[in-house]
Amino acid sequence: MPESKDLSPLAFHLLLSLLQGERHGYALKREILARTQNKLNPGPSLLYGNINRLLEQGLIEESEERPDPHLDDQRRRYYRITPDGIAAAQAEAQRMQTLVKLAGAYVAL
């Protein structure tokens, strides 16, 4: 399993979104925008660059299932999180929590 430090903020957000279920690229982006109040706004290239990396690391995989053609565009590609991805997201959240605890000793939170 890759170490959590390998995860960029965008990759972490992608994993968080996929923890909710399968998503296609544009849906992932919309969710991230909503979650971060538009503070994290990746362009399509950066989004797919990160998706590509997560696929290579085995943290996500492409889903074979497609929604009903009447509901969505058939060309869209759907992704889902793998067990390794879940572990990586947990490790990253853990790391952040530890970091926040540590920072709390120095600054008022």
Binding site: G25, Y26, P42, G43, L47, Y48, I51, D73
Partner: peptide
């Protein structure tokens, strides 16, 4: 990812400032 990226860009092209999108594409 070429098709997916282009498709997503087209969707954003209609709703977001175009100059911003192009600059973002270049920096990415």
């Amino acid at each position: 990812y070429g098709t997916a990226i282009e498709q997503q860009f087209r969707e954003e092209w209609a709703t977001q400032p175009r100059l911003f999108l192009l600059l973002q594409a270049l920096s990415e």
